[in-house]
């Protein structure tokens, strides 16, 4: 964690919280999509609005994870400077995981289909 002494400069914590939580929500979207595709029980649990099927639950759960992560990290980092390189690496790693897990051929590969 780096301290800053420039009174004009805003701490990077709130921005880092937004970035990391966006990555977390994206990763969660991929994990939930894969779980729903792989397990009929999970698919049934995610079907909270039948006309849209499990998509309704998968996306709602990912949004909840994203917003809860954002709220928590914002409170934690509101007036702090954090290591943004590490935050970016973690956020983009989760974003890439999310992107891969929502790509149907990759989903099928993981499930041995």
């Amino acid at each position: 964690m780096n301290a800053t002494h420039d009174p004009m400069r805003l701490p990077n914590g709130p921005g880092a919280a937004a970035i990391l939580s966006a990555g977390t929500g994206s990763g969660a979207l991929g994990v939930f999509a894969l779980a729903s595709d792989a397990s009929p029980v999970v698919r049934h649990a995610f079907t909270i609005w039948p006309p849209s099927g499990d998509l309704s639950g998968v996306t709602l759960a990912a949004i909840v994870v994203w917003l809860v992560a954002w709220f928590g990290l914002s409170r934690l980092w509101t007036a702090r400077d954090v290591g943004l390189v590490r935050v970016n690496v973690a956020a983009f790693a989760m974003l890439i995981v999310g992107l891969l897990l929502t790509f149907p051929p990759f989903m099928d590969l993981l499930q041995g289909k």
């Binding site: 970035i19 994206s26 929502t102 149907p104």
Partner: peptide, 25 residues
């Protein structure tokens, strides 16, 4: 469709973050 129905959701999450960071900083 199975890719489209999921991948589209990355966009509002990302753009909400982008708008927030821009407004904040």
């Amino acid at each position: 469709m199975e890719w489209k129905e999921h991948i589209a959701w990355f966009t509002p999450i990302a753009m909400t973050m982008v708008a927030y960071v821009f407004i904040k900083y």
